[in-house]
Design a protein around this nucleic acid. Structure first.
Lengths: 215, 215
DNA sequence: GATTGTGAATAAGTTCACAGCC
DNA sequence: GGCTGTGAACTTATTCACAATC
């Protein structure tokens, strides 16, 4: 039995593994019991080598004749991603994007649980928005501590984003999905993933123009 | 994320340049006339070397004593990103995420213009949603051709995502920002950028857990 | 003296290619 | 015969380090 390194997976690799797991769960639902790397690669929009390489990080379970067992592989990825228990997440900022993320959770996300929702706007605090009770930022420290949350989603406006991030970190949040266009400054050890829609749009527009010019 | 790039800039580099430009525009507004690479790096959440390296792709304009001229650099990036004219973009899928993107455009995006909005739901077609008239998919081919659009944003549900992408490509769309969790299969030369919120969330949760364990 | 521009070095990420297996 | 697991090769991305510049 070989030691499998469970340290040092890159953010990219984690993203692909998460995708594979979702695809495997769909296959399982359809009664498929095994897949080959090239099949999973097609579904995931990547290459067979990449799939095999990624699945090396997981206990290797594939056999040349059958490919990868769907259920076992999906479970092995789950173990690696650490989803023994549902992980708790909070959301800060209930604007239109915040509501879109709320919606996302309502279609029943299997591995994550949105436990509390916050907004700085006094007009929203205390109200029920899309099925979630909106808390004021004053309750942040108390709830984060009580619920033992480590992960936050930032869907607020650029103003106050850094200040809110600082508060979150001091409350114990160590990982954030940042939808604002501000590049947050956080202390070493805190993970921030930026999803800047404006940048994504400009990039797509750039490649659209390039491709169009190439005719 | 598939890439087509005739020789030149990577998707990552384009993203950073787009960010620098936005930051430079803010600086300009504040009357700042020049910045050093380390200042821009701090604002952009990157390193001075990276900034200098990126700005090499642009006509290099910096001087050791002053740094980079804010206005000229911002304009040089704009020229590179090809934003002489506002680029036209369409949006397909007016659910909660689609509306969030609509909102985004309403705060007046300087370089892109959302020219048409589509949805497959007959109940939405013909209605005005958040200030935009929703078209049916039947009008897709006509409008894309008439408006000469090359770029689309996909904010619809997973069902029908591939089929809609196929239609878009056959209408002349060559670049897409894909918010669905489906990895689209498109012909060579079409750029697709995936923004999978589910994957992003799982990644952030993973790093949250890891960081928490390290205490 | 601090900063730019850049070749050279390093790191990160991906693909190749092939032995061993079913 | 076609597949997995994996070292090696390769490609892409980032950082270093330093001469040239202001």
């Amino acid at each position: 039995m070989r030691e499998r390194g469970r340290q040092g997976l890159s953010a990219k690799a984690i993203g692909r593994l998460s995708l594979y797991r979702r695809l495997l769960q769909v296959l399982e639902l359809h009664g498929v019991e095994a897949v080959f790397s090239h099949e999973l690669a097609t579904l995931a929009g990547t290459t067979p080598s990449q799939v095999r390489r990624d699945l090396m990080s997981v206990e290797s379970l594939g056999t040349p004749s059958q490919g990868y067992p769907v259920l076992a592989t999906s479970q092995a990825i789950a173990a690696l991603l650490g989803a023994e228990a549902k992980q708790r997440v909070i959301l800060v900022g209930v604007g239109s994007l915040g509501r879109a993320v709320l919606h996302y959770f309502q279609r029943n996300h299997p591995h994550l649980e949105l436990t509390a929702v916050f907004d700085s706007d006094p007009a929203k605090v205390g109200r029920q928005i899309d099925g979630a009770l909106v808390h004021g930022l004053a309750e942040l420290a108390g709830l984060v501590d009580e619920l033992q949350v480590r992960t936050a989603i930032l869907t607020l406006t650029a103003e106050g984003a850094q200040e809110t991030a600082d508060r979150l970190v001091s409350c114990g949040i160590v990982s954030m999905l940042n939808f604002t266009n501000v590049r947050l400054r956080v202390r070493e050890g805190v993970y921030v993933e930026d999803t800047d829609i404006g940048v994504a749009l400009e990039r797509v527009a750039y490649f659209g123009q390039r491709a169009a010019e190439e005719d």
